[in-house]
Computed example of a mutant assay.
Amino acid sequence: MRLNAALLATDAPPIPEAKRWLDGVTFPPDRPLLNVSQAAPTDPPPEPLRRAIAEAALNDPDAHLYGPVLGTDALRAELAAEWSRNYDGRIAPDQVAITAGCNQAFVAVMSALAGAGDEVLLPTPWYFNHKMWLDMTGVRTVPLPCDAAMIPEADTAARLVTDRTRAIVLVTPNNPTGAEYPAETLTAFRDLARRHGIALVIDETYRDFHSRSGAPHDLFTDPDWSDTVIDLYSFSKTYRLTGHRVGAVIASESFLREMEKFQDTAIICPNMLGQTAALWGMRNLRQWVTSERDEILARRAAVQSYLGPVDGWEILGLGAYFAFVSHPFDAPSDAVARRLVREAGVLALPATMFAPPDDPICDKGLRIAFANIDRTQIRDLANRLAALA
């Protein structure tokens, strides 16, 4: 049979590809595999949350039925209230939609914004699933280079906007680089997008692990935020609900009405048990989330302390779950990533999975998802990289 040409031209999913590098490799007991390839919690949700999920599964008949296309009223209202409080803005429940994870939030938003032949700006290095979706749907990705601190600049983006541009996408804290975009950077991009009548899509999957106390930006203090800003969020990392697939979109009511067409066609409704879990977590686990953030920030500090001084290796970006590093070898990053598996027992992703082939970052960059390993393992990682160099 004949398959969709755009799908065939789309890159393969990087995580499964990287895991195939492990085939046939033996890791001795004194040097077990350090898997820093994927940014996902490896522990289940805390027990009280698991009990809440079990209680709903047993005793709430609605948990097993179709729900509202844009999510339950209770969760939409809770998220609107928290965003309004945390960002000192005004977000109404009908400006919130619940999705089947943040990846699905992105594809729903892009389906409402852009079609074949349109253009979307993605900073490089980019989040590979964003690029994959645009490729599948015939939307042209316009690479937006970042500066040495892994921060994109609105002035650079302004030179790339055309009459085909439909959106600029920013991820902060960033995947893959970990970079936390300054508030003034987001404001400059908002102003640029508004001048051109296009959307500024901000993926804040990792906002709960931001090193800054308080709101990371002030975009929602603008009473007209919804004419330009679309915000994405994930419950997966914050509450360890990756398998339950719960995310959110914060946007104008009129935009969400159009996005609802895609949502109804693609998933009918978000996972009902997942929504129950997210709501319970928001109402009951605030202190627990604070402790999780503290631990991630401690691991970030450990990366800086242990990996920062390693000769030949340079930390280009650091934050949330990620360190983006430059290696010292005279070889492209994909070859170095395979060598790390064989010679150091480390599985990390090369920059070739996050950028176009002609981007210079492909020669030297590697993403390390340090949230998956504890501080002792981070020290071990640094020692292994030092020995390899």
Rank of each mutant, 00 (worst) to 15 (best):
R2T: 12
N4I: 09
A6K: 15
P16V: 03
V25T: 10
L33M: 04
L33I: 05
L34A: 12
L34E: 08
S37Q: 11
Q38V: 15
T42N: 12
D43E: 15
D43T: 15
P44H: 03
P45G: 13
P48K: 12
E55P: 05
L58P: 01
G67T: 04
A77Q: 08
A80T: 03
S84Q: 12
R85M: 12
N86L: 14
D88E: 09
I91Y: 06
P93N: 06
T99E: 08
A112V: 07
A114K: 13
G115C: 03
A116L: 05
G117I: 14
G117T: 14
L121I: 03
P125T: 00
F128I: 05
T141D: 07
P143M: 06
C146F: 00
I151F: 02
A154V: 03
A154H: 07
V161T: 02
T162E: 08
D163Q: 13
R164H: 13
T165Y: 06
R166F: 05
A167W: 01
N175M: 07
A188I: 00
A188G: 04
A199C: 07
T205R: 11
T205V: 10
D208P: 06
R212Y: 09
A215Y: 08
P216S: 11
H217T: 10
L219A: 10
F220V: 05
F220K: 04
D222T: 07
P223I: 05
D231E: 08
L232E: 00
Y233M: 09
K237C: 09
K237H: 12
T238E: 09
T238A: 11
V246R: 04
I250F: 11
S252H: 02
F255T: 01
E258F: 13
F262I: 01
Q263E: 07
T265S: 13
L285H: 13
L285S: 06
V289S: 04
E292Y: 01
E295S: 10
R300T: 10
A301L: 11
L307Y: 09
G308N: 09
G308H: 10
D330V: 03
V336W: 03
R339K: 15
R339Q: 14
P350R: 02
A351D: 01
A351Y: 10
T352Q: 10
P357F: 02
P357C: 01
P357D: 11
I361L: 14
K364C: 08
K364E: 01
T376V: 12
R379Y: 04
A382W: 10
R384C: 05
A389H: 13
